[in-house]
Design a protein around this nucleic acid. Structure first.
Length: 274
DNA sequence: CGCGCTCCCTGGCCGC
DNA sequence: TGCGGCCAGGGAGCGC
């Protein structure tokens, strides 16, 4: 589900829940694992400590404690929400943080593709989930020189390339489709064949779309909701994603759809050059 | 190593 | 209304 804009919004929501001096009194795990094991024995490492910061790296949300990070990833259907009592616990709730504010911060995830873990700060950079991540798309590190360099010789499609978190993080299926449309580049074009001009357009389009989506509260297709259970509205201005068979907003050509590397992809074959 | 494919899991929707 | 099949914002792991 969530790509960078949605994770960014959830992260801002968590920041508000961890008001000054709010800490975690206890953690309940309602099952033993999600995509991987839940940190049943590590919870003591972060109890009764005031969080030092709440951050986002790629599609992970990081809550900082003295010596540990509490990390979560929403996978396709993960969500954080706040409840005031245990009567409100639902079927797919897996982790309950009992806060000193007497609120319950609950992680739910029907498909269980998500992650919730507690890791030592000094092991963070070597953690396999983090050590291979590429630059943040909204940072200066994601620039033409960098993109050009890492895309040389890559036979894979540009769509697969920008969705690969080793190259640049935070871009998933929706924003890859939207950014490539705005950049006028076909999702099927080989990464190695991109010109610097096209790379410049892809970077600019990605950044503009991600930033604009954050302002819209993200894209809510099926499941995504922010921590207040509000839906985003960026999906209302998607130009190609989910618009198979509809006319291209620029030229009227019928929007195409095709599975590329296992993910459904939408584009205008006239506006986007291959 | 690079690349492509499959799988993890549940729920919602569509067509019969 | 019931049920099978298909699809979904991600990413790890496998085989070639």
């Amino acid at each position: 589900m969530p790509e960078l804009p949605e994770v960014e919004i959830v992260k801002e929501g968590l920041k508000k829940v961890f008001k000054p001096n709010v800490f975690i009194k206890d953690i309940s795990f309602l099952r033993k694992n999600l995509r991987s094991s839940l940190p049943l024995k590590k919870k003591k490492k972060i109890l009764k400590q005031i969080p030092k910061s709440v951050q986002r790296r790629a599609k992970y949300i990081l809550v900082e404690f003295t010596d540990f990070w509490m990390i979560s990833h929403l996978g396709m259907t993960g969500a954080w929400r706040v409840e005031t009592n245990l009567q409100k616990v639902k079927t797919h709730d897996h982790v309950i943080l009992h806060l000193s504010s007497d609120e319950l911060l609950i992680y739910s995830d029907p498909r269980r593709f998500g992650v919730f873990d507690i890791i030592e700060k000094n092991k963070f950079l070597n953690d396999k989930r983090f050590k291979t991540l590429g630059p943040e798309p909204l940072s200066d590190e994601f620039n033409v020189e960098f993109f050009f360099k890492i895309s040389r010789g890559k036979k894979t499609t540009v769509k697969q390339f920008v969705m690969d978190q080793k190259n640049v993080v935070g871009i998933g299926n929706i924003y890859a489709c939207e950014a490539l449309f705005e950049a006028c580049v076909s999702p099927l074009k080989q990464a190695r064949k991109l010109t610097k001009n096209q790379i410049e357009k892809i970077i600019a389009a990605s950044q503009r779309i991600l930033e604009q989506s954050i302002l819209y509260g993200g894209s809510s297709i099926n499941d995504y909701k922010d921590i207040d259970e509000k839906k985003g509205s960026f999906q209302t201005i998607h130009k190609v994603y989910g618009r198979k068979g509809e006319p291209c907003v620029k030229c009227g050509t019928t929007v195409r759809a095709k599975v590329i590397s296992g993910r459904n992809s939408f584009w205008c074959s006239k506006c986007q050059k291959s």
